[in-house]
Write a protein that binds this DNA or RNA. Structure first.
Ligand SMILES: [Zn+2]
Ligand SMILES: [Zn+2]
Ligand SMILES: [Zn+2]
Ligand SMILES: [Zn+2]
Lengths: 148, 148
DNA sequence: GACCTTACTGAGAATGATTATCAGATGCAG
DNA sequence: CTGCATCTGATAATCATTCTCAGTAAGGTC
């Protein structure tokens, strides 16, 4: 006899939750995130993960998963769209920032432009820099071409 | 005979609204903004401007004024606090960004670290950078000393 | 100064993203 | 296998911000 299960329930997916408990809902969410391929809102993710026939996933669970992934460093906030926070998959590792295509939402990592000189000039003015936020917006090649 | 008026009604205040209509409410708001001396939320501003005995100013008017000042370039968003957007007085003029003291909220302008090299490397990767957001967070001398 | 047009005001309702609640389900260490 | 801490999900609650709309008042013009 064959077990009845949803095809995506046990799909191997990258550990985006950083050691936290891995439930069926979180497995489906972790599998859905890379399938979006760009910046997304929590509601976007909720729609993707709730599409199809099987039972959906509660919106609160999606918001909690996004928080957990962001805390784990596998997701990063990359701006906002119509009052909703935009998130994107983040490779973690080396410190970096993101460039978001405002046309299609694709996101690429960029090096950090906050260098020692800037930091030093701030310190000379009496300020200690503890953190920073940098996000670039632009157009990918395809979207730039499309608007010609 | 002396005219009866609210002391702040006609106080000369910098034109933060960029040519738009200057009402009594906006004059009071424009006078209140510099008195805060750092980052503030719309609700903060509403409280400051509504303190005292005379009639307050509607919260919607404050939100509208903040939008207008931001559009005029005299105010800039410098992050968020507890889900509310933080704003700060911005000198306009030369392109720059802001460093916010997370202790007391004081804000100073900083030069733009997005240089031609970064822009060029993005273009080599096929991306055209159209805009960017940069904000630094840290501690001013007084706040750094205070936590010793 | 009177007039007119149009932008601004303000109270309150509406919107909408995100979070809190809480009882039930379930991952997972031991 | 068991125990329990964590996760889930439906729903209610929160709360920043925007909308509505009738009334007010800038500011230009004559
Ligand atoms: Zn694109
Ligand atoms: Zn950086
Ligand atoms: Zn400070
Ligand atoms: Zn810049």
């Amino acid at each position: 006899m064959s077990k009845i299960h949803h095809p995506t329930d046990k799909a191997p997916s990258p550990d985006l939750f950083g050691g936290q408990r891995l439930s069926a809902a979180r497995r489906r969410i972790a599998a859905a995130v890379p399938s979006i391929g760009g910046a997304f809102t929590a509601e976007d993710l909720h729609e993707v993960v709730s599409a199809g026939d099987g039972p959906g996933i509660g919106v609160a669970t999606v918001y909690r998963a996004v928080s957990a992934m962001t805390a784990a460093g596998s997701l990063a906030a990359v701006g906002a769209r119509d009052g909703s926070t935009l998130y994107a998959l983040c490779t973690g590792g080396e410190h970096h920032h993101h460039l978001v295509c405002t046309g299609c939402g694709i996101v690429v990592g960029i090096g950090c432009p906050i260098d020692g000189a800037l930091r030093r000039s701030a310190e000379e003015a009496g300020y200690t820099v503890t953190s920073h936020e940098v996000t670039l917006y632009g157009l990918c090649r395809a979207c730039a071409k499309e608007r010609a």
